[in-house]
Nucleic acid binder design. Sequence first.
DNA 1: AGGATAATTAGGGAAATCCCGTATTTAGGA
DNA 2: TCCTAAATACGGGATTTCCCTAATTATCCT
Lengths: 233, 233
Amino acid sequence: MELVDLAATPQGQSDFVRYLAQVCDQTGVEYASYAAASPVNGKVFAFTTYPDRWKQHYMQQELHLADPTLHTASRSIAPVDWSRLERTESFNSVFDQARDFGIPDVGLTIPIRGPYGETGLFSVTSSTTPEDWLKLRKRIIADLQLAAVYMHDRVMKSDRLIDLLRYPALSRREIEILQWVAAGKTQQDIGDILSISPRTVEVHLRSSREKLNALSTAQAVGRAISMGLISPS
Amino acid sequence: MELVDLAATPQGQSDFVRYLAQVCDQTGVEYASYAAASPVNGKVFAFTTYPDRWKQHYMQQELHLADPTLHTASRSIAPVDWSRLERTESFNSVFDQARDFGIPDVGLTIPIRGPYGETGLFSVTSSTTPEDWLKLRKRIIADLQLAAVYMHDRVMKSDRLIDLLRYPALSRREIEILQWVAAGKTQQDIGDILSISPRTVEVHLRSSREKLNALSTAQAVGRAISMGLISPS
DNA sequence: AGGATAATTAGGGAAATCCCGTATTTAGGA
DNA sequence: TCCTAAATACGGGATTTCCCTAATTATCCT
């Protein structure tokens, strides 16, 4: 799993970082971040207003692999307040490191999912006391939720990002054949339908498996569905 | 595809309807609805504050099959304002019928998705003019978004509802084995892991296919994933 | 335009799955 | 309590998928 700082890429998407900064200004939180994970290639793309030192440390140490805020929020529907996270080993490790870099440990993460099974995680941290945080949170939670949806919507509508997140792109034929497999057809059936040899069908399935990093066609179908490349039928 | 009015079921979940009514009061919209769709059995479960006449008509005519608000929002990330919907045949049909029942055609639908791929749709309608609606929407959109997330979270945490949505129930062994298949394991692998004969593994897969009405194991895996019975891995 | 990379096509043989059985155990309803 | 339905467990044989290799065509990039 690889973490990519999108603001640092050639065609830097600084608009998104600017939007995060604006959210900080308007809501009174200290830092804001957005990360989108591809369910398949495992890459994580992120924007953040965190200081460069922490950003670099986070990426170098690959903390996104251990970060309990990401892990918990990606399995939740509602926002996850960091005070409710389990005090696991990972939790202590990541939050201790953050504290060393002057990053507050008060905040929350909002998960946002789209129709392709992709997940966006929108986090903010506040330098207030835990008591004041409760009041602030109550006041701004609706705005944060809306900002998270807006951010995810914009990111997913960005051609470049959607290409990265939807990667690996299956070829038209591969998707067509995978869709038939998901509909319960055999390779022979599909060969007849498409007027090609069942052997050819099998080759397309093999390359689909490779691109999706799947061990079996069933796993490939599952991934393709959870990515929205095909629809269950 | 079947539409079920959850408030009318034996153990009526009237708390949810009460919550919708509360949303109406606090935001100034006329009606509010929530619907959750199971991707596989196609059933749609709904709560609403609409008048009984419209509710009955909607269910009898199975309008949820044609309703463009549901169709569009279920493919969107951000809220869908009904004024932006395409004027298709379905659109005119459903909205004309609604008008006959005195239901406003001004409103929006907010899609909410959870970690299992399930989708919730939260809709409100306003009896204001389109111009006033823009102002009202701007003021309440964040609260509506939060209410939608809250509603979906609560519904999904309701044991009875999640059981309904996850129907048909596979046995523990069937789910366990299907999960391993989705993880790319062969029947032999799974037999070794579970210390049973690979033949037995195959029998469980066969009954899984039958219950999910799937022609192949790959199709069964796809359905199980889109139902949230198992998670893609 | 040329050259690299990816897409689409295909066959032979090995491996795995799927369909046909049977049998024992468990759970729930008449 | 007995009986039926469902869950669990196995095997033989036909079908299907999977892995190897490899050709031709498309597409993209400089």
